[in-house]
Design a protein around this nucleic acid. Sequence first.
DNA 1: TTCGATACCTATTTCACCTAGGTATGATGC
DNA 2: GCATCATACCTAGGTGAAATAGGTATCGAA
Lengths: 112, 112
Amino acid sequence: MATSQSSFLNGVPELLVLRLLRDREMYGYEIVQAIREASDEAIGFAEGVIYPLLHSLERDGALTTRRQTVNGRSRVYYRVTPVGAGRLAVLAEQWHDLHRTIAGILAEPRHA
Amino acid sequence: MATSQSSFLNGVPELLVLRLLRDREMYGYEIVQAIREASDEAIGFAEGVIYPLLHSLERDGALTTRRQTVNGRSRVYYRVTPVGAGRLAVLAEQWHDLHRTIAGILAEPRHA
DNA sequence: TTCGATACCTATTTCACCTAGGTATGATGC
DNA sequence: GCATCATACCTAGGTGAAATAGGTATCGAA
C-alpha cells in the first residue's frame, strides 16, 4: 500500500553492532556484553542474535574479520568497512526519522 | 539470557492506534489514513495490520466498539477503555525508555 | 459501467528475533 | 582429580508481529 515492506522497526541489533564497531574492532562475545552494559541491562541480545548478524554483515561486505587466539581461546575480531559505515549512517538516519515521527504523533494534541 | 524475550520493538502499531484513539473515537479505515497522514506518509500500516490489531485490542478489553452506518457504509467506531489507557501509558513509557537507551549508545564516544 | 474511494474482513507468508541447544578452553573451588 | 563457571565460538528450529495479498460490498464520478 504505502510506505512499508521492510519493517522499519527491525535492524536495531544491526544498528547497535555497527555503532559499537565504529569506535574500535571487537569480537562477538565482547559485543554481546557491551550492548548489555551500554544499555544498562535494558537490552540483552543473546549470542544467537549477534553471531548470525555478524556473519551476514560480513557476507554483505559491511565487516571484515581477523582471527586471534588469546589465552588459548579463539576470538574473531570484526571491523567496519566503508560499506558498513554507510549502512550505519542509513540505519541511524532511519532510526532518527522514525523516532521523530512517532514522537510527533505521541505529542500532538492537534490532528484534525 | 538477559532482558529480552518479547521483542521490545513490536507494538508500535498498537502504540499509535491507542494514541490516536485517546483523543477521540475513530473507525478502522479512518485510523489507517490518520496514521499515514500524521506521519507525513512515513508510516503506512495497511488495513491487514490495523484491523486484526483492533480486534485483539477489543478482545483484551482495551477498546469498545460502536457500529454506525454513514452514507450506506457501515463503520465500526473504537473507543479507548481505562484498560486501553493503561496499556497506552505502558507502551509509551517503554518506547521512551528504548529511545533513551539507544540514543545514549549512538551518541556516546566513550564506553571503555 | 467501469473505476476509484470508502469500509469492512481474514488467510497466508515472511523473516527478524528468540530459544535452546551444541563444542571447546581456561580458571576456580572442593 | 573433577565439577563448575566464565569465556568464546557456533547453528538449528520455533515464534509471532507485521507484511502481503487477497476477498466482499457500497457510493460517486468519469
